[in-house]
Design a protein around this nucleic acid. Structure first.
Length: 131
RNA sequence: CGAGUAAGCCAUGCGGUAGCGGUCGCCGUUUCAGGCGAAUGAGGAAAGUCCGAGCACCGAAGAGCAAGGGUAGCUGCUAACGGCAGCCGAGGGCGACCUUAGGGAAAGUGCAACAGAAAAUUACCGCCGUUUUUAACGGUAAGGAUGAAAAGGCGAGGUAAGAGCUCACCGCGAAACCGGAAACGGCUUUCGGGUGUAAACCCUACCCGGUGCAACACCGUUUGGUUCGGUAUGUCAACGUCUGCUCGGCGGACAUGCCGUUAAAGGUGGCUAAAGCCGCGCGGCGACGCACGGCUCAGAUAGAUUACCGCACACGACAAAACUCGGCUUAUCGGCUUAGUCGCAUG
């Protein structure tokens, strides 16, 4: 993967779940956020709900393959986390091409640095008041 | 041909294009990158983490007793085992063969629901005897009834009626003798007369220190001054040190100051040449052992096998290494091989 690092810091995962933008299709949900770095970072979560080790490893493999194929369509400077759902069993990696189209659109629609901060603030405030 | 038994093997295959992990080679670079090519890359259970070992660290991993846990026919195999093999006993099957948590109940304690008089020093009915005779007392386990189980079975003697009370035979237990390496077996002899339960406590024999590769060793940034070591001063003179007690070993102990070191991110080693795999021969009923020859066969670290296409058919189950081995247990679409058994038919 040319422009990509693997994401493994639990705090970054938590930040993405809380504040990240979402895009989804059957079997997988993607969270993303700009990271202001010259490369992308991505991670995969496949919980025990999906099945045993065979199913979980397969889910990770398929998502990795899908990412590799569509890497160039994703803008630089993003953190992305894919969360595999139970419906992923039996799917092929090509079925997730649509997700990347969605993702690309969503990222390009998401405003650049200064306004992103605003939006993030809004998002941060809403759940904050509920707590 | 049908039914059934035992042992073993395989785990969709082949090809193309792009991609992933480590390895090797070549190119390239001051170095770090990087590029190209080659072969290679999950299992029979990799699983559950239930046993046994190696390895590492934890007072010297030293000793004894206690506590706690485990094992439970015998002999062997093995690094070891709670595993395996052969044999013995018990049970099942016409048979090939299969199953077996298989020490001790005459050391002690406990328990035995319901029913039944009574579940272990038992008397409800019955039977016999005595008396103050619609009953009471004593004797009695042959008969009735209950139950999973009722004082070993059956016959004879015996008696008031009965009873291993006595005797024969059978059965059970112990000792002797014979056979066997042993468990054990025996149509031998003697002695005994106390239900079952030890997957109830318990007793007996044997075994067991703890924690696990996120062990552990090394490198090491920022913060930091916990941890450990050294040293100085003060207080205490008995204590501290990995379950209890005893012995033994080691250290005086605690507080404060100073000096050094150091946890946590990350990296390297541990990490795969091993109780390894394959072939062949010899010994052994067998588990297995010995000898010779050949082979190197995943080592990731958020964790490598994917995508698309073509062909074939039986249309593909259960499921993926994470320090490494030996077992056990559980899951599994199907297919194949070998050797016995029983039944039917034919010769």
């Amino acid at each position: 993967m040319l422009y990509t690092e693997i994401l493994k810091d639990a705090r970054v995962f938590a930040r993405l779940y809380k504040k990240g933008f979402k895009a989804s299709c059957p079997g997988v949900t993607a969270y993303f956020l700009r990271n202001n770095r010259p490369y992308n970072r991505f991670g995969i979560t496949a919980g025990k709900k999906i099945g045993g080790a065979v199913e979980r490893n397969r889910a990770k493999r398929i998502l990795r393959a899908a990412y590799r194929k569509n890497e160039l369509s994703v803008p630089l400077g993003c953190d992305i986390v894919f969360v595999a759902r139970e419906e992923i069993n039996g799917k092929k990696s090509t079925e997730f091409d649509r997700l990347f189209v969605k993702l690309e659109r969503a990222v390009s629609e998401a405003p650049e640095k200064p306004s992103t901060a605003k939006k993030q603030e809004k998002r941060r405030n809403k759940p904050g008041t509920q707590q």
